[in-house]
């Protein structure tokens, strides 16, 4: 009971915060409304834009600037070290692991998610009752990476083969006749792929829903004309369907790539980057908040930022092009 009281007090804090912010906003609205005549518009602009601009300046712009500056400084942020942190990232012997892993993640997880999502979207297009499957495949998207990590940790669990198995993967492999399944999460380098499976499990639903909508939006006269010309099956797919949804495919692919690049939660909960599974985003966290090396942590953040830019730019350009056509 006592615990419930404390809990409700916490929720109350949240509600109070919302109420206070609402009150403050109403107050500045009230003050702003007193401005008359030519002052009206300028005051309204300050009132409406002010809070957001302040937050963005303090919470995003200045911190990003300071991180960039910090990436050229040493571990404690006292001295300038030029590009030393960047040189360290790309040349230090141990670092090739997280660099290579991140590149593998960046290629494998998005391609497989999109590919499987596209296959499902095409198959769904030929089904009468599709909504239940769609919902269930889409559902992992609502689960946190930490939750997904626990779910899959259960599947990858290792037990001595002489004992009854608890992990589904080991059990299935043993049913199939393998006598001595490996300890999955320690099984280098394949453990990386097992972690990617979690990401794919989450992202396939997203790819499927978006691509399925794109396929349905292909005008039926286009398909009919192609069919009259004798295009069926694979030819119809490669010459009509794919070109018609090309833009959406690219958007889905780059979107998942952006998410993958920043993947942190899965690796941290499953292996914490041990056993050869480290990636850039988790290395950034480890450098910044475990090793307290501000310089290296900042430099890794900048690397992530720079890597994300071309993906987003390509994404936006693609969206614009599609819109212009429509």
């Amino acid at each position: 009971m006592e615990e419930l009281g404390a809990g409700l007090a916490k929720v109350g804090t949240g509600v109070a915060a919302v109420a206070i912010v609402l009150g403050l906003l109403l107050l500045i609205f009230f003050i702003g409304a007193r401005a008359k005549g030519r002052l009206q518009s300028p005051v309204a602009i300050v009132v409406f834009l002010g809070p957001a601009i302040l937050l963005l300046a303090y919470g995003l712009i200045v911190p990003a600037f300071r991180t960039t500056v910090g990436s050229f400084q040493n571990a404690s942020g006292q001295d300038w070290v030029g590009f030393a942190n960047y040189t360290w990232i790309f040349t230090a012997p141990g670092n090739s692991t997280f660099l290579i892993n991140t590149i593998l993640w960046l290629i494998i997880a998005p391609v497989l998610s999109t590919g499987l999502g596209l296959t499902l979207a095409l198959l769904l297009d030929r089904m009468r009752r599709e909504s239940v499957s769609k919902s269930l495949i889409f559902m992992p998207m609502a689960i946190s990476f930490v939750g997904a990590g626990i779910i899959w940790g259960l599947i990858y669990e290792y037990r001595d083969p002489s004992k009854p198995q608890v992990g589904l993967l080991s059990q299935v492999v043993m049913w199939l006749g393998v006598e001595d399944p490996p300890n999955w999460l320690l099984w280098q380098p394949f453990n990386n792929f097992l972690l990617m499976v979690i990401m794919i499990w989450i992202q396939v639903g997203f790819a499927m829903v978006v691509l399925s909508a794109a396929i349905k939006a292909i005008p039926s006269d286009v398909v009919e004309a192609a069919e009259l010309d004798g295009a069926t099956g694979y030819r119809l797919f490669s010459k009509v369907t794919i070109p018609m949804i090309r833009g959406t495919l690219i958007v889905v692919l780059t979107t998942i790539m952006i998410a993958v690049l920043k993947i942190f939660d899965i690796v941290r909960t499953m292996t914490n980057g041990n056993f050869g599974t480290q990636v850039v985003a988790n290395e950034m966290y480890a450098q910044a908040f475990v090793a307290f090396d501000v310089g290296r942590g900042s430099a890794l953040a900048v690397v992530l930022f720079v890597a994300v830019i071309p993906l987003i730019v390509y994404n936006v350009v693609q969206l614009r092009k599609e819109r212009a056509i429509r």
Partner: peptide, 28 residues
């Protein structure tokens, strides 16, 4: 609320989406 530079403010704010959360954690 018509004002000069409205478009720039809009594009500027929206463009901030490119900043990954990692860029802000340490200074914050």
């Amino acid at each position: 609320v018509p004002f000069r530079g409205a478009n720039i403010v809009f594009v500027g704010i929206v463009a901030l989406q490119v900043l990954p959360i990692q860029m802000t954690l340490l200074p914050l």
